[in-house]
Nucleic acid binder design. Structure first.
Length: 625
DNA sequence: GTGGAACGTT
């Protein structure tokens, strides 16, 4: 008689397997772990739920069966089942203790479910029971520390461990690269070589990723040499080929990257092509990127996202959104990254209706690798940039504390700043501090900008002074710019000028322009001349500042000087690139230039604008030129 | 009769 395993191996359909199960029930073998294991294992690949059902009918499952199912669930989309199985394993009578097989699967489940506390509890159990000297357990611990972003403890455990193998090194190198510490990963690789541990394809892929993120083509070439020595010129590993192409693409060697793709005997896959698309788009050659994108044999969500982001990077937001809508219409499920890119494009175009549609559609989405943190941030940013600050605040306030990040606070703070809600911004910042989130450079730009727009001079000064001393963020050019603007608007022109003279770097055009417009506002001709001289001496020309300067001189009744500035502008032939504006009305995107009268409803628009102006002036606003 | 780690998009 054939063994059950042999019979199952020849099963072609689920029905045949179910018949075998029925037979086991008839012969009374369905209660025995030993007899049921092959059936449970048969269903585990595609019908895990059924395996679980069979398992639950066994009165006394053994450690092996528990481990088997815990493993299967830890790899599945529902890893929490692995943890409940573990609980029932501990509480069965007699209780079953986990072994070195159990722990790695539990850690994997914790990592997938972001249960860092549980993982740490389990780890202390591992140490107590001595399983930390098992290399499989160690590697799983390293993996979960990296998954939780705890690079420090991963390194600590790795360096203090007495057992290490090739996988430990690979996990370290890969984890460090993904944590943005590619430089450290190369050091670990040095240790690996020093300890005469052989490299394998996992090592090589991780090293190529390190070179990609460091844009270190020299080391990249050395690793390419290692690949060649290890595997010869033709290789069968698609992931490795892709990593190689990506390395050359990220290092700017696009020609070499393309050569690797074409010499790869068709072994390089979607990822390699996606790297090329993204590299060309980043270089500003969107047309080339699009041609490659259209030529690709196979395209997945990531390739579409690369092209969409590529358009965004080159300022082609309309093309980006067209591609996103096409992606949806093809029935492909965009991931968090794609949706974030589309929302960013909406934000830049003022596409409120499309943005709102995207927000509603993906609000409850359950993304495989998504955290929803990026999504929330992009949604808040989109509403704020589209002028709907109330909706932005609404989404923000309904966001759970553990979903709040510095980035999210930066989005809402910038929104509040641009909407002139300075006091509200200060209150939100206070809330951010209480939550223990650390502000970064962007936070302070938003805050100082908010203070500037609302005349909160003392708050602004206090914040600026606390940046480095309290928060460890050193002020950049933008922050000085905000301060010059803040002081200038409040009439503190001398203080602003003093700040410019005492900055650690030379002021840029933005700063001088901001001082110039403050001079205009407060009628300081001497400082205005000084600022405009600085501006004219700057290399990269910008027509707007001269227009501003001549406007100012006209307002100050210095028509002769104004005329000479205008003439200087005309003589040099300074041209300001046209600034396109976009507005979305009822889902239709309208594009126009300043002074553009080509739109069919230009007259009506002009009339409405005049009404708004008059309304603003009636309630006491001063409209500057 | 069960183990581990890997590529491309923000």
């Amino acid at each position: 008689m054939k063994s059950l395993k042999a019979v199952l191996a020849s099963c072609k359909t689920i029905h045949q397997a179910l018949q075998i199960h029925a037979q086991a029930v008839v012969t009374g073998r369905h209660h025995h772990p030993f007899h049921m294991a092959p059936l449970i294992s048969f269903f585990a690949t595609n019908h895990l739920h059924h395996s679980h059902l069979l398992f639950s009918q066994i009165p006394n499952p053994d450690l092996f069966l528990f481990n088997f199912l815990i493993r299967a669930f830890s790899l599945s989309q529902t890893p929490h089942h692995a943890l409940s199985l573990f609980r029932s394993m501990l509480s069965s009578s007699p209780p079953i203790s986990p072994d070195s097989f159990t722990f790695p699967f539990l850690f994997k489940s914790c990592a997938k479910l972001s249960l860092s506390k549980l993982a740490l509890q389990l780890y202390s159990h591992v140490i107590k029971t001595g399983f930390d000297s098992n290399v499989f357990v160690l590697n799983a611990v390293l993996h979960f520390y990296f998954a939780f972003g705890d690079v420090h403890n991963a390194c600590k455990v790795f360096h203090e461990s007495s057992v290490r193998d090739r996988v430990s090194y690979n996990t370290m190198i890969n984890g460090l690269v993904r944590a943005g510490r590619a430089d450290c990963s190369l050091k670990v690789f040095g240790e690996m070589r020093g300890n005469r541990v052989e490299v394998d394809e996992y090592t090589l892929v991780a090293l190529l990723s390190a070179c990609s993120s460091l844009e270190d083509r020299g080391t990249g070439r050395v690793v390419h040499g290692l690949v060649y020595r290890k595997l010869g010129c033709v290789n069968e590993n698609e992931l490795l080929m892709n990593a190689l192409v990506d390395m050359y693409a990220k290092c700017g060697c696009l020609e070499v990257a393309e050569r690797v793709v074409s010499c790869g005997n068709g072994k390089s896959g979607v990822a390699a092509w996606t790297s090329l698309v993204s590299a060309y788009a980043l270089r500003g050659e969107v047309e080339v990127a699009r041609r490659l994108f259209d030529q690709m044999g196979e395209r997945d969500v990531v390739s579409w996202t690369a092209m969409i982001s590529g358009y965004c990077n080159s300022g082609c937001f309309q093309e980006a959104l067209e591609l996103f809508v096409k992606l949806e219409s093809l029935g492909m499920e965009p991931d968090e990254v794609a949706v974030v890119a589309a929302l960013a494009a909406c934000a830049r175009l003022g596409g409120l209706e499309l943005g709102r549609r995207i927000h509603r559609k993906y609000d409850g989405a359950s993304w495989r690798c998504g955290t929803h943190r990026g999504f929330t941030c992009a949604v808040v940013d989109m509403y704020a940039k589209c002028g709907s600050i109330d909706t932005a605040l609404d989404v923000f306030s309904r966001t759970r504390d553990d979903m709040r990040t510095t980035f999210l606070y930066n989005s809402i703070l910038s929104g509040l700043a641009h909407h002139g809600l300075g006091e509200h911004a200060m209150a939100v910042f206070e809330e951010m501090r209480l939550l223990g989130l650390e502000p970064d450079e962007v936070t302070f730009v938003a805050l100082l900008c908010a203070c500037g727009h609302n005349g909160l001079v003392n708050d602004g000064k206090r914040l600026f002074e606390s940046m480095l001393s309290v928060y460890g963020v050193s002020p950049q050019m933008e922050h000085y710019g905000c301060m010059v603007d803040l002081l200038g608007r409040a009439g503190g022109l001398d203080e602003a000028y003093y700040l410019i003279q005492n900055m650690p770097f030379r002021a840029n055009a933005v700063i001088w322009r901001s001082l110039l417009s403050a001079c205009k506002e407060h009628g300081d001709v001497t400082l205005a001349r000084l600022a405009s001289q600085e501006l004219l001496a700057m290399e990269h020309d910008h027509g707007a500042r001269n227009v501003l300067l001549s406007n100012m001189l006209i307002l100050m009744d210095k028509h002769d000087e104004a005329a000479s500035v205008r003439k200087a502008v005309d003589d040099v032939g300074i041209q300001k690139p046209p600034g396109w504006s976009y507005v979305e009305i009822n889902g239709v995107l309208h594009k126009f230039l300043a002074g553009d009268t080509s739109h069919p409803e230009a007259k009506a628009t002009e009339l409405m604008l005049r009404n708004i102006h008059m309304g603003l002036e009636t309630i006491g606003h001063v409209i500057s030129a």
